[in-house]
Design a protein around this nucleic acid. Structure first.
Lengths: 204, 204
DNA sequence: TATATACGGAACTTCACAGTTTCGGATATA
DNA sequence: TATATCCGAAACTGTGAAGTTCCGTATATA
């Protein structure tokens, strides 16, 4: 019979840097095999951590994933680095960069991996949307608003709806069709859908 | 040691009507809880069948689901019943009917439930897409082509891309946002995205 | 330097579910 | 009416993964 003690000042300190490593590993595995395919052993192995370390920090697989999604700000675009070319098309085309496409692709694969959890946990659906999908739509809204402000497009443009078009079609292609997002595909959305929809066709 | 017999003419015949009942039950459960949440017991209970009956007809849960998706033609639109109003907007708006929206919603929920299987089985991804998503896109392509033929819209319209816009945005809303598809939402896609994109804005 | 806690690793326990078998009863052929 | 197969129901088996415990070691306080 041993004495149960509780001396919070004593003993080795929990290493805070392990949290980020584990959450990153969880997102990697999530993007690769999805929530159901992911096992705690996979995440632990990827993070070179013991399973006990994971359960010391998160009570369950579900809570680990929820936390990982909530903390994935690092993939967000740097607002200061956003293009401002003077034309809507210039701004949209300037977003077609390898880095941004890679990050966007990973976000969409994470979203695909979360799919099966969304119906069980509506608050996760909300978190996932605002963390994964919303930031890029917000960028599009800004581009559209600037275009309105400079008189490039009509003031009654449905900014919210148009800003979702690219996101929706990219998500559809990645998640449903399982096809890669290419620069050609993104250019085609811009030139054949978005710009015509805001009245900026090829001036025919 | 009993004699193994093989008298295909003898004995009670397999009831073919059970197949459809079981496949329908599988699609129902799939739409409600997804592939991972679905259990064979749920499907058997829903179809009022014994588990042994299911395994006499399909070797595994996976094959049952693949067959269910491949056989779900009954939700398809009757090609003869398609609208032909004389205008693109008329045709598109005529598709906003309770029955079609309900069937479309169920199809998208089935697609969401299949998500976790798609990466494991690329041929299922192909089947699911051609069975679930493609038929409605084909209808849109027909509407667009007719509009081109009658000179309502430009001949160089990117029909394939535009035909996907509605599908993509509806799928995005149902699966990612978990919000219901309303007539207002569909009208907004038609009037604020699709028609402007093909040069049929509100004649401003 | 004694105590308390974190670490990675591995063995262990528990449980839900896929898949199998068995049952009594129904239905088909010969 | 004997045989073979189907049916739904329920008991049973096997397995993979969530979650727990224990170990030897590392690192912090007092």
């Amino acid at each position: 019979m041993t004495q149960l003690t509780d001396h919070p000042k004593l003993g080795r300190k929990r290493d805070p840097s392990r949290d980020g490593d584990i959450l990153d590993a969880a997102l990697d595995v999530l993007a690769e095999v999805g929530y159901e395919g992911m096992t705690i052993d996979m995440v632990a192995a990827r993070a070179k951590a013991g399973k006990a370390t994971l359960y010391r920090r998160w009570a369950s697989k579900e809570l680990l994933v929820i936390d990982a999604v909530a903390c994935m700000k690092q993939l967000d675009v740097d607002p200061a680095a956003l293009p401002d070319t003077g034309t809507l098309r210039g701004d949209l085309v300037a977003m077609i960069k390898p880095k941004a496409m890679e990050d966007g692709g990973k976000k969409l694969r994470i979203m695909a991996g979360l799919m099966s959890m969304l119906s069980r946990d509506p608050s996760l659906a909300e978190t996932a949307h605002s963390t994964i999908m919303e930031p890029r739509a917000a960028v599009n809204r800004m581009f559209l608003q600037r275009a309105i402000d400079r008189g490039e497009i009509a003031a009654d443009t449905d900014v919210d709806m148009i800003a979702q078009v690219g996101q929706s079609m990219a998500a559809y292609r990645t998640i449903m069709l399982r096809k890669p997002i290419t620069p050609e595909f993104l250019l085609s959305i811009i030139d054949n859908v978005i710009l015509p929809a805001v009245g900026l066709g090829p001036q025919k």
